[in-house]
Simulated scan of single mutants.
Amino acid sequence: MSTVAGPAPHLGLGRRGERLAARHLQKLGFVVLSQNWRCREGELDIVATDGRTLVVCEVKTRAGQNFGDPAEAVTAEKIARIRRITGQWLRAFSLGWCPIRFDVISVLVGPTGPPRLKHFPGAF
């Protein structure tokens, strides 16, 4: 009998949160340019624009608040990494200087009710 393991449950939860966050941004009028863009150093969850500003969003999704609000998981080390990866994204797409904003979107998916999303523009 062969068993093939699927993706870890937390990865599915994270992808669900990223889809909800992307839809949220689109409802606000943003155009999503990249999702889950990867390079050797890491990944950017969402890169979007409002036509004037490039917005890099870190999405944190949790199934409960046992470890606090999901946004609290964005550490100084994570912020530094996101800033470095954003530079790589800009080079990969041959973009020069442009205004950039870094947002955090927190998604809390509880056992009942709809997911709760909090958007923190300019969080870092």
Rank of each mutant, 00 (worst) to 15 (best):
Q88V: 05
E58V: 08
K27G: 05
I85L: 01
P70C: 05
Q26E: 07
P114T: 04
P121V: 09
E18N: 03
G87Q: 01
F67C: 07
V107E: 01
A123T: 00
E41I: 15
L54M: 13
T53S: 14
V59P: 02
V104S: 03
L25K: 00
A92I: 02
G96K: 09
V109L: 13
G14N: 08
K78P: 06
R15N: 09
M1A: 15
A21W: 03
P115Q: 05
C98N: 08
G96N: 09
Q35L: 04
A5P: 10
H119M: 08
K118L: 08
N36E: 01
P114Q: 03
R101Q: 11
R91S: 09
G122C: 05
G29C: 02
C39Q: 12
R83I: 01
E41N: 15
R16T: 03
T75A: 14
F93E: 08
S34N: 04
T112D: 13
I79K: 06
A71Y: 05
R19T: 14
S2H: 15
P70R: 02
I79V: 13
W97F: 10
V59Y: 02
W37M: 13
R91G: 00
I105A: 01
R15A: 15
G17K: 07
V55L: 05
R91W: 00
L44S: 14
V4D: 15
Q88P: 01
A63E: 00
L33I: 06
G12E: 08
R116E: 15
R83N: 07
Q35F: 03
G12Y: 09
Q35G: 11
Q65D: 06
F102S: 05
I100D: 02
A22H: 04
A76H: 15
I100V: 13
F102C: 06
C98R: 13
R84L: 07
P70V: 07
P9V: 13
N36I: 00
R16S: 04
S34P: 00
V104G: 01
I79Q: 12
K27L: 13
L33Q: 03
I100Y: 06
G113C: 12
G14D: 04
P121H: 04
F67P: 00
A123K: 05
W97H: 12
D50Y: 08
Q26R: 07
R116F: 12
P9C: 12
C57I: 10
G51R: 08
K27C: 04
H119A: 09
W97L: 11
A5G: 14
V74G: 01
D69E: 04
C98H: 12
G122M: 04
C39S: 10
G51D: 12
G87T: 10
S106F: 02
L108Y: 00
F30E: 00
P9S: 14
A21M: 11
G17Y: 07
L117K: 07
L33D: 00
L95W: 07
A5H: 14
T112H: 14
R40E: 13
P115C: 11
L20Y: 09
A63M: 01
A73M: 03
G96M: 08
